[in-house]
Design a binder for these strands. Structure first.
Length: 760
DNA sequence: CTAGGGTTAG
């Protein structure tokens, strides 16, 4: 009910009610009857209905009394209605209910929830008589606000004034405690007040120990309890779930069953995320079975937890099945589905689910919107991303840090670095993820210097870089071959004790490969405490791109021997290694093995690799046949590979066919027209050359000049064609001319075929 | 007094 879209009518549209009640405003029978209705609505958690009932009360000219205002203030607390709450406080004062202890306590709770602790304290201080309830409320206000010192001060003061804390008082004290030392301070008074056998209180303390990371303290408290209830068991299980200790959880499950306690929905909801973390597919299925046979399968919390687990295991189908059959879908369930689809790279599907959610009338939360923005980023759709961003701004939906982090990434992924930076700068608060997002934004757009500057700014802002930060920078170094900077990050990783981390290690291997130091890359790889399929892919790709195809294949066999199940990506690395190293038969055999042994359907990248492989082997006709068979939709890039092969292997006839096919596709990539022109030029077909240039011009395309760069002593030097203002232009021209001459001589030598193999 | 959802990365 609370998730449905409701206009915030009480914030904006409610007319100011009369300040002074009519003189007849004494508690009538009508007032009492309305009050009991308000009380009922309040206790079933329908604050909106409480306010509507108040309106009908005013309409029927029934005067509110102090009980009425108590209910109304509670409704404002539940709905976080600041101005309406203040308005009711005004009524209370004008009508002389200020000294009512019930109303004062409701006001303390309201101001505390709204974050106005000093107002709460003023109401408290103005009370003529105070029993335990307002004391408990004020203690809770300070504690929840994080002002533990004041909470302790008031806690002591109440005892000094002769009021003995109840279990509820201590539980209120617990609400803001985050350090186990503070919790230990409470132990003596718990014993003094005779509360050490209060199960609810001990459960509460157990939970606080868990949140402070004191698993052993929580455990000891639990073992000392004489009568543990279901909440005690659930609490300890959630403590172990927090630290991801599945084996301890399974033992507790056994023990609780032996002691005659059956796990409930909350037990399973706590432990399921831990199964997801462990990536234990069989255990997940087994627990799902237990849940169904215990009849707990229709709880929204359990369903959501199970969906989350399946989605983390890349099992979108089972997650969808639960989602589709769920009776009541709340905002958390919708969000789980949307974010899970994004994590499984189904952004299109995620946005479709998001649309259905809006149609069904469930109000998205900022978590939902963060996932929707992430979906736009994955689709690289600036249009969708901005329109969603604009919609959110127009709707005045409150946004938070994680949502803004998603925005930073979305703009960066769509290539709008400046807008990404504007969002970042506008943020009032930034966490590690925000900094990582803006570093990644620059790193992925080739801005190495800016990425490093931001990394330093981050450290100046006293945000400690984590594994993600260094992975982002390593990625930037790898993409432009910044060897010195990459090495510096490596030392930074060691100095800041960020390891061991499989993602950092893999990024280091990749960086050293891409910067050309295969030996150190291999050393890093061998030193890794554990490998996974991604790290194997990385080292295989590294060998493949450095002309060591045989080693790449050897590493692949070792990967299989270590028991890893190959995925589509690792086959891409292997096929690349084969095609770039002349391992024709092996490449084709592995491609067949991928399909037949591992049941992996080739994607267009795999097929493209095979086309490239056949072309490099000179089997251009076979490549074309394969292309025709595997690509039902024409692909200009793959045709481009074949066209270039036709030119070097002098297959004029096929070249003609392929060139025509490319022309018909009207590709938007100017490089394709350059290729066409080169092809016609090689056949001395000057009309064809002119046609290719003309076609390109008529489409408004312009070839961006190619450029290259080299890292030298930590500095990146860039080169363009005709880059005459380069400080060493003359030297560069001299050296390249000499090199060209040497190459030409080599080509004329009898062994030039060998040389050709080397340069390709 | 106990439970489910988000953002950055190889």
């Amino acid at each position: 009910m609370n998730n449905k879209v409701r206009p915030h009518i009480f914030r904006t549209l409610m007319p100011p009610p009369p300040l002074q009640l009519p003189p007849s405003a004494t508690a009538t029978a009508a007032t009492k009857s309305f009050n009991s209705k308000l009380n009922r609505l309040s206790s079933v958690g329908e604050p909106h209905q409480v306010l509507w009932t108040y309106i009908s009360m005013l309409k029927s000219c029934v005067a509110p009394d102090s009980f009425t205002y108590s209910s109304l203030l509670k409704a404002c607390t539940a709905l976080n209605l600041q101005s309406q709450g203040l308005c009711f406080h005004q009524h209370v004062i004008v009508n002389g209910f200020s000294s009512d202890p019930y109303i004062a306590t409701s006001l303390i709770t309201l101001y505390s929830k709204l974050g106005h602790i000093s107002s709460a304290r003023k109401v408290f201080d103005a009370m003529p008589v105070r029993d335990i309830v307002p004391w408990t409320a004020i203690v809770g206000s300070y504690s929840r606000a994080g002002d533990i010192d004041s909470a302790f001060f008031m806690y002591k003061k109440m005892q000094y004034e002769g009021i003995k804390p109840s279990a509820v008082t201590v539980l209120n004290m617990l609400s803001g405690i985050s350090e186990s030392d503070q919790l230990k301070c409470l132990h003596p008074s718990v014993v003094k007040c005779g509360l050490e056998f209060n199960v609810a209180l001990i459960n509460g303390m157990l939970n606080v120990y868990g949140k402070c990371g004191r698993v052993e303290d929580a455990r000891n408290l639990f073992e000392l309890m004489n009568d543990k209830d279901l909440v005690s068991w659930n609490s300890l299980i959630s403590v172990y779930a927090l630290v991801g200790n599945m084996s301890e959880i399974l033992e507790l499950l056994d023990r609780m069953r032996i002691s005659g306690m059956e796990p409930d929905q909350q037990t399973f909801t706590s432990l399921i995320p831990t199964i997801a973390k462990e990536d234990n597919i069989r255990l997940g299925k087994a627990v799902h079975g237990q849940i169904l046979s215990a009849g707990l399968g229709s709880s929204a919390h359990v369903e959501t937890a199970l969906m989350g687990m399946y989605l983390k295991q890349s099992n979108v189908n089972d997650a969808h099945r639960i989602f589709d059959t769920a009776k009541e879908k709340d905002v958390v369930m919708w969000t789980t589905m949307i974010s899970g689809l994004v994590q499984n790279e189904r952004a299109d599907k995620a946005l479709e689910v998001f649309r259905l959610m809006l149609i069904s009338g469930v109000m998205p939360s900022s978590a939902t919107l963060a996932s929707a923005i992430a979906a736009c980023a994955q689709l690289v759709s600036y249009k969708l991303g901005t329109s969603l961003h604009g919609y959110i701004m127009r709707q005045n939906i409150a946004v938070d840090v994680p949502f803004q982090n998603a925005l930073v990434t979305m703009y960066a992924k769509c290539g709008y670095l400046d807008q990404s930076f504007v969002v970042f700068q506008m943020m009032q608060e930034r966490d590690v993820v925000s900094w990582n997002a803006i570093v990644a934004a620059n790193a992925q757009n080739g801005k190495l210097r800016e990425a490093f500057c931001l990394f330093n700014e981050m450290r100046t802002a006293l945000i400690k870089p984590d594994s993600v930060s260094v992975v982002c920078l390593l990625q930037a170094c790898a993409s432009i071959g910044a060897y010195q900077q990459g090495k510096w990050i490596h030392t930074f990783v060691i100095r800041s004790c960020l390891g061991p981390c499989i993602r950092i290690d893999t990024a280091l291997v990749d960086m050293y490969c891409k910067c050309g130091n295969l030996a150190i890359a291999r050393k890093c790889f061998d030193n890794m405490p554990q490998h996974d399929i991604v790290s194997w892919s990385t080292i295989i790709a590294g060998y493949g791109s450095h002309g060591q195809g045989e080693t790449a294949l050897e590493m692949y066999s070792r990967c299989l021997r270590d028991g890893f199940k190959p995925n589509p990506t690792i086959f891409l690395s292997i096929l690349y290694a084969c095609s770039h190293n002349g391992l024709i038969d092996q490449g084709i055999r592995l491609f067949e093995s991928m399909i037949n042994d591992f049941r992996i359907e080739p994607e267009f990248e795999h097929n493209g690799c095979i086309v490239d492989l056949l072309c490099r082997a000179g089997r251009v006709e076979d490549a074309y046949d394969f292309y025709k068979k595997m690509f039902p939709e024409p692909m200009a890039d793959v045709l481009g590979i074949i066209l270039d092969a036709c030119r070097t292997k002098r297959k004029t006839e096929l070249a003609d066919t392929v060139a025509k096919e490319i022309s018909l596709l009207k590709p938007v990539d100017p490089g394709k027209y350059v290729q066409l022109a080169h092809n016609y030029a090689s056949m001395a077909d000057w009309d064809g050359v002119g046609e290719a240039w003309g076609q390109m011009k008529s489409l408004g395309l312009k070839k961006v000049p190619g450029w290259s760069f080299i890292e030298l002593h930590g500095t990146i030097m860039t080169f363009f064609r005709g880059h005459v203002c380069h400080p060493q232009y003359d030297d560069v021209v001299l050296v390249t001319n000499n090199l060209s001459k040497e190459i030409r001589e080599l080509l004329l030598s009898p062994n030039h075929e060998d040389f050709m193999v080397e340069v390709t």
